[in-house]
């Protein structure tokens, strides 16, 4: 038998066994909102402070800045860390101001992974990405990699710099996925990222930088405040 017919046979057998069992009335659909703890705030200074404290607890570095100053923050960061090559995606909300922030350090993620692999794995110091939103409860970032910002941009370089707008904070992951109606259409990859990669597989001793980024820097843009001249 070919593998496909073999799989079809297994499928039929498994479903037949499941269908042969005496049917049981399905319990009512679970009420998720009622079972979860009451939400905290998803916006305002207190929420931002909570988010930052939580993210730092997971060993992320959080730098607060304004909608006008973030390129300068990025430049200072690149200089302080001695970054020689910083990778970013074109056509994002950040892209226009990245050349001014990074100058000759900036590399664009232009090629498909297969061609770009050798340089991505060996010659890139950091990847910069936008962030879809932040989760206050756990200090997490929500990333939706796409055509402009591939998955490996936030994964392979040893340093991940994430630019997060405070206006996109949500109290919990659940609130965020319900409000944004994720179930209606997910991207190929949706991620919740909390701190740099880590492991405790040797004698339970916590070590950062397992296989993903060794460090995570969150540039937290306070676009949620009045008087900055930028719409919230």
């Amino acid at each position: 038998m070919t593998p496909d017919t073999e799989s079809m046979r297994a499928r039929a057998a498994i479903l037949a066994r499941l269908r042969a069992a005496p049917p049981v009335a399905a319990p009512a659909s679970p009420d998720v909102a009622a079972g979860l703890a009451a939400d905290g705030a998803g916006s305002g200074d207190a929420a931002v402070a909570d988010f930052a404290a939580c993210a730092r607890g997971w060993r992320a570095e959080v730098i607060e800045t304004t909608p006008t100053r973030w390129p300068a923050v990025l430049r200072d960061l690149a200089v302080a860390r001695g970054l020689r090559s910083v990778l970013a995606g074109r056509d994002t909300e950040l892209a226009a101001r990245l050349p001014e922030a990074l100058g000759a350090r900036l590399r664009w993620y232009d090629e498909p992974l297969a061609a770009f692999k050798p340089r991505l794995f060996d010659a890139i110091d950091a990847g910069i990405t936008t962030v879809r939103g932040g989760v206050v409860e756990t200090g997490s970032l929500v990333l939706w990699p796409d055509v402009r910002e591939p998955r490996t941009l936030s994964l392979v370089p040893p340093l991940h710099i994430a630019v997060l707008c405070a206006s996109t904070l949500h109290p919990t992951l659940y609130r965020m996925m319900v409000r944004e109606r994720w179930a209606d259409g997910l991207p190929t990859n949706a991620l919740l990222v909390t701190g740099p990669s880590k492991t405790a597989d040797i004698q339970r001793l916590l070590v950062y930088g397992a296989h993903g980024p060794k460090q995570l820097v969150i540039v937290l843009v306070r676009d949620d405040r009045d008087g900055t001249g930028v719409p919230a």
């Binding site: 591939p150 190929t188 990859n189 993903g212």
Partner: peptide, 23 residues
């Protein structure tokens, strides 16, 4: 592991789509 959250929650929905550079 007594963690409120892990480093990654990875939701994969289908193979690489048109125009995507990896996956």
């Amino acid at each position: 592991t007594g963690q409120a959250v892990t480093t990654y929650l990875n939701i994969v929905t289908g193979p690489r789509r048109a125009g995507e550079k990896d996956g």
